[in-house]
Design a protein around this nucleic acid. Structure first.
Lengths: 116, 116
DNA sequence: CCGATATATATAGATTATCTATATATAAAT
DNA sequence: ATTTATATATAGATAATCTATATATATCGG
């Protein structure tokens, strides 16, 4: 993965929910879309995504439905729920706090703390 | 912890090395300084920090020396090495890539990808 | 036509970075 | 004198990723 996997840790749920906020998607599509939208920074593995989707469904954050586009091939589409939108909003707020704090530490010289 | 521990995951090493770039510090001081500089967003636990410092020392990223400030009390100061500065630079570049990508996904609407 | 690669989902087990809990010891505050 | 803060350390638990493997269909090149 382009980005350190440990950095990605914790934001995957937020990113997936964000994708679903725009439109219903199936798993494989999410992996591709995340890769494209992040300029190949995120290359989520199937072994990470599918268990995560199952977990989100169990928690009521998303619901799924099967779609048989071309005859046999089955795609499992996911749709974000109201509860899922709530979680997304929380995660976004958390992310905002987190990345602002990291950047403050990184930019701050020895006496930055004095400005607060 | 104010920030989701999973979000913090992966950036702790970078943040610690950044603190040491400014000045030599001892463990307990790093915890307090991180908390202060991040406006209480990061409250690193001792059980996380000390093993991490030992690991960084083993890898040659930092070196340590004991300082007996007031008689008995021992503080173990850490100093960043040239190798550690190299790692910090790498981690900073990675972080820049990562948080830019996350923000792009978060801000991007359904057709953002078209702009690339 | 056939083999390789891409699409699509799924699960088990390994890895890793955090956490909590616990231990030890001195200093400061009430 | 007892509690709280300072200071470091390690063991074990938790959680989120990864790799590896499995299954099945679709597409592409030779």
């Amino acid at each position: 993965m382009a980005a350190d996997k440990t950095l990605l840790s914790g934001s995957t749920t937020m990113l997936i929910l964000k994708l679903l906020e725009d439109k219903d998607m199936y798993g494989y599509q999410m992996i591709e879309e995340l890769s494209k939208k992040s300029n190949d920074t995120f290359n989520l593995k199937a072994g990470t995504l599918y268990p995560l989707l199952h977990s989100l469904e169990q928690q009521g954050m998303v619901i799924s439905y099967d779609d048989n586009v071309d005859s046999a091939r089955i795609r499992k589409y996911y749709s974000i729920t109201k509860k899922g939108r709530g979680l997304l909003a929380d995660k976004k707020a958390e992310w905002q706090t987190y990345f602002t704090a990291v950047n403050r530490v990184l930019k701050g010289g020895a006496n930055l703390a004095a400005s607060y």
